[in-house]
């Protein structure tokens, strides 16, 4: 289609494209731009478009003032625990559904799909009650339990594709050459899965790292907030909102996420349509 567009049509599409680019990118740019501006420039009725002569004062206030470091370590602990546990569990399950045919295989896959679609809000009340009963509210373990369940279905689904992508014939060949089935799997298939495991792990990382709803529900105590909850409360508690600090904090949280996302995004589109990722 692309090569038969009339010059006028192409010009129109290009202009629209520039508009789309601006609408998409401007909020992100505006966040970074204003995070470098001193308070009087942010509050100036006329906007400052480029942060010439900007300041790092906002970043200094964020990094030294609030409890960002507590929130950061909380987020790191929960996210890493979630990713590790769900990768191991998902890997085993993915091997089961791709390398074996057994009764209940399709049911299991179907169940994953349904679970995937359960809205968090539909269960968070009873998850809260459960963790309260276990004495696990405001703990890393408690939040990790609900996060693993949240990330697991999509992790299994994605890994399944990767495991299936390694031809079984390779393992067979290794077995003919004298490997046991286990050896064949771990010496031949497993190394080929490494990129898939990394990509899937990064997806899980992003999901857990950005998660807000369950974190608000489970981590009710201020000292236990994860980064997203901390940012939300930080925005809230500013007297006459200190936008410079808020936007600096947002930038700090967003930049690593964006970088990670760009690394793995190529697989995102296909993963999403095949039901792999929770919105």
């Amino acid at each position: 289609m692309a090569n038969r567009v009339s010059p006028a049509g192409r010009l129109g599409a290009n202009l629209a494209g520039i508009a789309i680019f601006l609408v998409c990118a401007f909020p992100v740019y505006w966040m970074v731009n204003n995070s470098f501006l001193p308070r009087n420039k942010i509050r100036n009725p006329d906007p400052t478009w480029v942060p010439f002569g900007g300041t790092l004062a906002n970043y200094r206030r964020v990094l030294t003032g609030g409890r960002i470091w507590d929130a950061l370590s909380m987020s790191l602990m929960v996210t890493l625990a979630t990713v590790l546990i769900s990768l191991v569990f998902a890997f085993l399950a993915a091997v089961a559904v791709t390398r074996f045919r057994f009764r209940g295989r399709i049911s299991f896959i179907l169940a994953l799909l349904v679970i995937q679609m359960i809205p968090v809000e539909g269960l968070f009340i009873s998850q809260y009650k459960m963790l309260e009963g276990f004495g696990l509210l405001n703990t890393v373990v408690g939040l990790t339990i609900v996060y693993v369940a949240n990330v697991l279905p999509f992790t299994i689904w994605t890994l399944r594709g990767f495991v299936a992508g390694v031809p079984y014939e390779l393992e067979e060949a290794a077995m003919i050459d004298g490997c046991s089935r286990m050896q064949a799997f771990f010496r031949v298939t497993f190394p080929l899965l490494a990129p898939g495991l990394v990509a899937t792990g990064v997806f899980g990382f992003l999901q857990a790292w950005n998660e807000f709803t369950l974190a608000v529900v489970v981590m009710t105590r201020e000292s236990k907030q994860t980064l997203p909850v901390w940012l939300s409360v930080f925005t809230d508690s500013q007297k006459g909102v200190d936008w410079g600090a808020v936007l600096a904090a947002s930038t700090i949280i967003a930049v690593p996420v964006i970088v990670f996302f760009l690394i793995v995004q190529g697989r995102m589109v296909s993963g999403l349509t095949s039901g792999a990722v929770k919105g």
Binding site: I20, A25, P228, T235, L247
Partner: peptide, 25 residues
């Protein structure tokens, strides 16, 4: 390519960060 880069940026933004920026906008 510019459009794709812009779309990726908007897609990659963490929800909470987007919320603060849009509230500011």
């Amino acid at each position: 390519i510019a459009v794709q880069a812009g779309l990726l940026l908007a897609w990659a933004m963490p929800v909470v960060a987007s919320m603060t920026v849009w509230t500011f906008l």
